[in-house]
Design a protein around this nucleic acid. Structure first.
Lengths: 196, 196
DNA sequence: AGCATTCTGGAGTGACTGCTCTAGAATGAT
DNA sequence: ATCATTCTAGAGCAGTCACTCCAGAATGCT
C-alpha cells in the first residue's frame, strides 16, 4: 500500500464513504438522496465528494457495484452450491428473506428500491437491466436442469424464472413494508410450493 | 346540475384534470411529479390548480381516491363474486395481470409505485397502509373459508394473505419492468400452485 | 349598471437541487 | 526551501421545487 501519490492526502476514508453512500441510496433511493445528504453524513464538503467520485451518477455506479459485492453474494452462492435449480432457488428465496430484513441495514433489495421514481431514466433503466440479468441467470440455471432431465422437457423455463424474480421483488417490497424475516420465510415456502 | 355559483367559472374540467393527475402520479410517482408537470399537462397555471385542489398532498389524496374508484374495482369484485377464497384470489391475481399491463395507462399498481422514494414520509406511509389494508382484506376472506371448513383449521391465514400480497407487488413491479400480460398470467398461475 | 365573488395568467417567493469556483492547506519530489 | 500537485472549506452558480401575490377577467345577484 501507501501508494506514493503527491499532493495533499484525502481527509476521509473513501471506502467508508462509499459504504455510507450505499446505505443512503439504499434507504432513500437515487433521486431522494441529495448531495447534501451525502456530504452531511460523511462530514465532508461537496468539493471533496466530487473530487473523489465524480458526479452523482458516477458515485451511484460505484454504489451499485459495492452493493453487489457486499450484499449480493448470497444469490451467486445459492445458485452455485445447490445440486438442483429447485434447491438453488428455494435457498435463494429463503436467504433473501433473511437478507431483506437484517438489522442495521435498509430493508429490501437496493437494486429494486433505489431506482423507483427517479427522474433520471438512466438510473431506472440501469437497475432494471440488472434485475433482468438476474432473471436471465435463474433461467439459465433452470434450463440446465431441464436438459439434465431433472425437470420436464416441456417446462416453461422463462415463466419459472420470471416467477422467482417476481416473488423476490414482492418479498423485497413486503420487507420494506415491515414484514419480518419469519413472515417472508413463509412467503418463500409457499412460493416454492408452486414449483413443478 | 348548473350549480349556481357566483364568480368567474373554472376554465378547465376539474374531473378531467384529476384523471390526468392520476396518470402522472401513477407513472412518475409522487415526488417526481412536479406541480409544473401537472400545470403543463393540464394547460393551466399553478394558481388555478391550487385554487381547485389545495396543495400537492391534497391533490394526491384525491388522486388516490380516484385511482381506487376507476382502477381498483377488480379487487373487490374478485373477492365478492367467487365462492371460495382460493377462487377469489386466483381471479384477483389473473385480473391483476391484465390490469397491470393495459395499454394506455401506466404499468403496475399506483398504490405501490407512487409512494416509493418519496421524501414525504407521509405519502409513503399512506400508501403503505392502503396496501396493508388490502392484505388484511385477503386475510379476512381466507379466514372465512377456514371457519367454513373449506381450508384446514391449522391454515396460517396471515402467511397466505401476505403471500398473495407479495406476489401481487412482485407482479406489479415485473409489469413496470416490461413483463407482458401473458408473462404475468403464468406467474399468477404458478403462484396459485402454492396454495393449499 | 353596479357589486360581490370567484377564477386566471404571470411574475415572484425562499428553499433546495446538483455542481463549481476560488483561496489556501498539506503533501512528495527536487 | 521550493515547487508542482492534490485536496479542503466555503461561498456561490443557474435551475427547479412547492407555493403565493396581484391585477384583471368573468360570472351571478341585486
Amino acid at each position: 500500500m501507501a501508494s506514493t501519490t503527491r499532493g495533499r492526502p484525502r481527509s476521509f476514508d473513501r471506502k467508508a464513504a462509499l459504504d455510507q453512500a450505499v446505505l443512503l441510496f439504499w434507504s432513500q433511493g437515487y433521486e431522494a438522496t441529495s448531495i447534501s445528504d451525502l456530504t452531511k453524513a460523511l462530514g465532508i464538503g461537496p468539493a471533496s465528494l466530487y473530487a473523489a467520485f465524480g458526479d452523482k451518477k458516477a458515485l451511484f455506479d460505484e454504489v451499485v457495484d459495492a452493493y453487489g459485492d457486499r450484499y449480493g453474494g448470497y444469490m451467486d452462492r445459492a445458485l452455485a452450491q445447490e445440486p438442483t435449480a429447485k434447491q438453488s432457488l428455494a435457498r435463494l428465496l429463503h436467504e433473501a428473506a433473511e437478507e431483506h430484513t437484517r438489522d442495521g441495514r435498509p430493508r429490501g433489495c437496493m437494486l429494486l428500491c433505489a431506482g423507483e421514481n427517479a427522474n433520471s431514466v438512466e438510473v431506472t433503466e440501469q437497475l432494471r437491466q440488472i434485475r433482468a440479468g438476474n432473471v436471465a441467470v435463474f433461467e439459465q440455471r433452470i434450463r440446465v436442469d431441464v436438459q439434465a432431465g431433472i425437470l420436464p422437457q416441456d417446462t416453461d423455463v422463462a415463466a419459472l424464472a420470471l416467477y422467482i424474480g417476481s416473488v423476490l421483488q414482492g418479498m423485497s417490497q413486503s420487507a420494506r413494508d415491515g414484514a419480518s424475516r419469519e413472515d417472508l420465510e413463509k412467503v418463500a415456502a409457499l412460493a416454492m410450493n408452486g414449483w413443478p
